[in-house]
Design a protein around this nucleic acid. Structure first.
Lengths: 206, 206
DNA sequence: TAGATTGTTAATCGATTAACAATC
DNA sequence: TAGATTGTTAATCGATTAACAATC
């Protein structure tokens, strides 16, 4: 609905969830104020960076006493589209899939885990919370089609991703330690814990 | 052991795990060759970027036929220190902790899950794989101390992180949707799936 | 007013891309 | 040799930081 926001820089987009994470559980009443330097300090950024980032958000003039927490929350919720229901399919009913499907935060941010799929026939039919694991082919049936806009492929990522894409999924969160190739119109975000572990350990060498 | 490597740029460090992920399961025999453009294409980078990145790796002259896969693997394994045992403590024996503790890849990359801890007395004593969940205080006892160099705090991250740091942990992988404040000497890497979900969904708006 | 903070513009810094000479 | 690819240097681009005027 934003009439025209001049494209948000990549680096800013990356930081938005962090801003929200900080604002959401700030230990102050909702109509108190925060200053740039508080946010910057808490997130390990310079206050310059925060000020620059905020120019990309449609924020009410901060006056001199900083920003009303309530207002910041509102703006961030809007720009991150947190209140919009996002239908989610999880592929892979192993431990990680299970952990995700029962991950409380997802609901809090309007991610609605609709279905959990697996290729392995031994897992199909088992229960995870209130969901029954279905065969991955389910996604191509009319009932599922177009209802899911985000999916999380675990192992055999590329093959699974291909099937998801052809069935109309518009966004993929890749949890596997491989790169997924996808057409431009499909957004792929990587979230690979193995990379993060390796990154951490190589940072620790220095 | 590296006598003096001129500090690797941050951006390169970030990409190293990706290079390795690609090289490790490339579909070619080990003593075949890869070219820059193959790597670049597979990872969605320009071949310029890959070439620049590789100048930071101690790589044998590529000659004209590209790089021997075997050699690249060797170099990346070395620079990522993959063969070095890294002792790991997982804090939080919930679904995510469970998923991590049984995550096969960790072993493959020499991460040795030594202990799994929780604050919740109801979980302490339960079994996860071959490990028994222990109380978080265990980390401060002499037996555990100095044995662990990486830990993964889940919920109540900051509080837990503080306890881990005082007990001598040198690296933290933060899985929680909060920022962890830590002294300079402790390396903290964030790996928050909730951020990644929000990032994906905000990328999908445009 | 004086002090502090915002919002914006300019300067710096780093990372990516392009260009090209050197090599096989 | 001609073509292709590497390794390196230079040019571009974007992101971060610094500086400062405007505001309360």
């Amino acid at each position: 609905m934003d009439t025209q926001t001049k494209a948000m820089p990549h680096a800013v987009t990356q930081r938005l969830p962090q801003y929200f994470a900080y604002i959401k559980d700030i230990k102050k009443p909702d109509d108190e104020y925060v200053h740039f330097h508080e946010i910057a300090y808490a997130l390990g950024l310079t206050s310059s960076t925060v000020r620059m980032d905020f120019t990309h958000l449609n924020i009410q003039d901060g006056g001199k006493h900083g920003y009303k927490i309530k207002h910041l929350k509102h703006v961030l919720i809007h720009v991150l589209d947190i209140n919009k229901k996002k239908r989610l399919a999880i592929v892979g009913a192993g431990n990680l899939g299970k952990a995700l499907a029962t991950h409380g935060n997802l609901e809090e941010y309007s991610f609605d885990v609709r279905t959990i799929l697996d290729i392995n026939p031994e897992l199909v039919g088992s229960k995870i919370g209130r969901l029954t694991v279905k065969n991955i082919d389910c996604l191509t049936t009319a009932r599922c089609k177009d209802k899911i806009n985000i999916a999380v492929p675990s192992s055999s990522a590329q093959e699974v991703a291909y099937r998801l894409i052809t069935s109309g999924v518009k966004g993929l969160l890749n949890l596997a330690f491989t790169r997924i190739v996808a057409p431009q119109k499909v957004v792929v975000a990587d979230s690979c814990i193995m990379s993060d572990f390796l990154r951490l350990s190589s940072l620790m060498i220095n």
